[in-house]
């Protein structure tokens, strides 16, 4: 019976861990997308200085969490997001006004959101 309870306990711990992980990732991703949204808003207003600052802030936050993301997610996805952060920073620096910055920002935000969405407990993800 001891073996049964240990196994059940391990399963519960793993399940609880996966839920905690999901909410933690969701929290981080929300913070990142919020910062990127404000970068987008600043860019629309023509305040490129604050926009670039927001992008740098989001990238720093991303880099701080990167080791954890590497343990959880497919490394390709994580590296891709970092590359996109760099190109977004460049676009902000060059003050791209032709909508390129807004498009790159939106693409990056949706990629960040996908990270936690693929771990969400729903039928779509299960099947």
């Amino acid at each position: 019976m001891k073996r049964l309870w240990i196994s059940v306990a391990l399963l519960v711990v793993m399940l609880a861990g996966s839920f905690l992980n999901y909410y933690y990732i969701k929290h981080i991703c929300r913070e990142l997308t919020d910062t990127l949204s404000s970068a987008q808003a600043y860019a629309q207003e023509g305040d490129w200085e604050h926009s670039e600052q927001s992008v740098t802030q989001a990238r720093s936050a991303w880099e701080a969490h990167e080791p954890y993301f590497h343990v959880i997610f497919v490394h390709r996805d994580i590296d891709q997001i970092l590359v996109e952060f760099h190109s977004l920073g460049e676009l902000a620096n060059k003050q791209e006004t032709g909508g390129e910055f807004a498009a790159a920002c939106a693409a990056l935000m949706s990629e960040i959101n996908l990270l936690y969405e693929m771990d969400a407990l729903n039928l779509e993800n299960i099947f």
Binding site: S7, L10, L11
Partner: peptide
Amino acid sequence: IPLLAGIVPIMTLLCLASV
């Protein structure tokens, strides 16, 4: 692919097999 992607399913299977 993160190592955890292999370890977590194996751990889950071990627990299930044991149960």
